[in-house]
Design a protein around this nucleic acid. Structure first.
Lengths: 151, 151
DNA sequence: TCGAACATCTTAGCGAGTAAGACAATTCCT
DNA sequence: AGGAATTGTCTTACTCGCTAAGATGTTCGA
């Protein structure tokens, strides 16, 4: 680790805080547009980003909600058509939450706009610069993930 | 706008989504450590990032909460010692919410760790690369801000 | 096979949110 | 200047989603 101009760190800290606040707002907007609460959208995001279907209990763990609360979340997501409850055939106590693939574009829509923004931003950089940015994003996520998880 | 390899965009989209999810989790952790709800922490963040003290009504606008809800938020923040209510001497209807400067480090602490992470990440780049990253963050925030606000 | 462990759902109670109106201070208009 | 309209915050009544604890149904191990 080498040392850095204090003003530089100061500026970057401000960027991060603004980014942070904007992200929280963005999530709120996405949820609103989808007719969901922030909690419901967060759980749906977990389900979408997972490899296979998640169980209700796993969603409770990942989201930090009680199992009872998750029951309600899945009820609302299912009623809105975003997910389906499927009993695990190998262990019928479990409830698998499958994302309703038929309507992927329904909740994909708000993210389309974010994608457009991303394209617009990245368009200002050449290949070499994009590599720097990519390396930064990877490192940032990795470091931040450790920080958030062990904190 | 020039076109870009689809896989590149794909990868960047994933970085953004992960960053997004991590940010939301991070905010939840910070709030938890401070003994506040996510909403209260969000409002405190608004108050801290503002130039001068904000009025209760302005916090309602910025946070998207009703004025009644903000009354509750300020009650809790004040009871916990994070802010003070001060009546505006020029317009005594208004309530100015001053951040309790004496205890800045109290709520600064969780952000210290984030700052450490940032230093660690930035330490992997030289000056030229940092300039690229800075330009990226500026553009990203600017674009995202427009997107979030007009959406 | 039976009891313990497990996964989810249900219930009761609570805290925080909204909408609407009360109250106090300020501004506007004549 | 003085009363009406406006503005800023707080209060009230009600709703909704959360937690904790227990109920229900399923699986596992001795």
């Amino acid at each position: 680790m080498f040392d850095m101009e204090p003003e530089v760190l100061e500026r970057f800290t401000l960027y991060m805080r603004e980014q942070s606040a904007l992200t929280v707002m963005f999530h709120a907007r996405v949820a609103e547009q989808m007719g969901l609460s922030a909690t419901d959208e967060k759980c749906l995001d977990l389900a979408m980003r997972a490899e296979g279907p998640l169980t209700a209990g796993r969603i409770a763990e990942l989201s930090g909600l009680s199992t009872g609360a998750v029951t309600g979340v899945i009820d609302r997501l299912e009623r809105a058509g975003y997910v389906r409850r499927v009993r695990d055939p190998h262990d019928r106590r479990k409830v698998l939450v499958e994302v309703a693939v038929g309507d992927v574009d329904k909740f994909g829509a708000p993210f389309e706009k974010a994608r457009d923004s991303l394209v617009e931003v990245l368009g200002h950089f050449d290949d070499a610069e994009l590599q720097v940015i990519e390396r930064y994003l990877q490192l940032q996520n990795e470091t931040f993930r450790k920080r958030v998880i062990d904190t």
